[in-house]
């Protein structure tokens, strides 16, 4: 963004420039930072009211899912590409974090390696399959996810096979211990996951406002129009695909560490669908949609255990109703409603 500012007015004196940027300066904090702060407040608010580790545990899952779904928001909400294989990237992050420590690589490095691997795979696979669109892309990504899942469940010597494997290594508790804070491990993971989700959301929001983000949204509306505006469509799509894979992989690595055990189902088809469902339910166009979708689909089943027999019916009903009455998801619907009331 800074680059753009200087190209429009390279020779302006400092004073004029100040006058010009005045409207921008009135917003003291940028949208990314604002999102980060909102998320941080929500994370803190949760910690304030949670009475037990169980709540922290559910909270941790909500933040981890939010992080993964934020990646889907970038891909689906910004660019309009559907991926049914993102659980694969999620699982790569998770399994790298589980496997590499067995070969003497410390957990944080293993995590980074997993995220990098997921990014590289997305880069390598992205170019050819992103030429497809709509259903064809969905099927191609589904195939990719299935392949990853198959490797994870067949290569038992490496991954423990269908029964899964233990993730040894880092506990978030020790992180806090280093700075003198003694937390239960459920609480520690909650803070780590919440922090990660907040950073992820801030980055995604900043991306949306940046030139690359605007290019992505242009592609969302029309490939051809975007190309005629000089957007390198293939490159932009591939970039969004890689970014969303990185989000999934980070979330996967966090889940592996927080759970201490993973199975190939983390990379399964149903998990991919779950991620897309969260995004669509909450509203795929914004990171708050990711949060709301993740919150509902993670926390609601916990509340619904009282009606265990009707759980699936209620969940299904909510989703069908949301999709019929609020096509763009919950958050955009509520925002629209709010705006209409104001005007």
């Amino acid at each position: 963004m800074a680059g753009q500012g200087t190209t429009t007015a390279p020779q302006e004196s400092g004073r004029e420039m100040q006058a010009r940027t005045e409207p921008a300066r009135r917003r003291v904090i940028g949208p990314g930072l604002r999102t980060f702060l909102i998320f941080a407040v929500l994370v803190g608010l949760g910690a304030l009211i949670f009475p037990s580790s169980y709540f922290y545990r559910v909270g941790t899952l909500v933040w981890i899912n939010t992080l993964a779904v934020t990646g889907i928001v970038v891909l689906l909400g910004y660019v309009g590409l559907v991926s049914l294989g993102h659980a694969g990237f999620f699982a790569i992050g998770a399994y790298a974090t589980a496997i590499l420590p067995n070969y003497g690589i410390p957990s944080p490095l293993a995590m980074l390696a997993g995220v990098a691997l997921a990014g590289l795979l997305a880069l390598a696979v992205g170019r050819p399959i992103l030429k497809l669109s709509g259903y064809y892309l969905a099927i191609a990504t589904l195939g990719l996810g299935m392949l990853i899942w198959m490797v994870l469940s067949k290569e038992a010597w490496l991954t423990g096979g269908p029964d899964g494997m233990v993730v040894s290594g880092m506990n978030a508790r020790n992180l806090f211990k280093m700075v003198g804070l003694k937390l239960k491990s459920a609480e520690a993971w909650y803070w780590v996951a919440g922090f990660a989700a907040a950073i992820g959301a801030a980055i995604a929001v900043n991306l949306a406002g940046s030139p690359s983000g605007r290019a992505l949204r242009a592609i969302h509306d029309s490939d051809v129009a975007a190309r005629s505006l000089g957007v390198d469509v293939a490159k932009a799509k591939s970039r969004a695909f890689v970014i969303s894979a990185l989000y999934a992989a980070v979330a996967g690595a966090l889940l592996a560490l927080a759970n201490g055990y993973i199975t190939p189902e983390t990379g399964g088809f149903m998990h991919s669908v779950e991620m897309v469902t969260m995004a669509v339910l909450g509203g795929a166009s914004s990171v708050f949609g990711a949060l709301v979708g993740a919150l509902i689909l993670t926390a609601l089943p916990q509340v619904l255990t009282v009606f265990a027999d009707y759980e699936h019916m209620v969940l299904g009903g909510i989703m069908v109703l949301t999709m019929i009455a609020m096509r763009r998801g919950l958050v955009p619907f509520i925002v629209d409603l709010w705006n209409r009331r104001k005007s």
Binding site: S53, V58, N259, Q302, A308
Partner: peptide
């Protein structure tokens, strides 16, 4: 107190926490 984890390890761990704590 019985919960249905649907064979999902993630859910199972959450329910175990819930059984113990809540």
């Amino acid at each position: 107190v019985l919960y249905d984890d649907g064979a999902d390890p993630n859910k199972a761990r959450t329910f175990a926490t819930r059984l113990i704590e809540e």
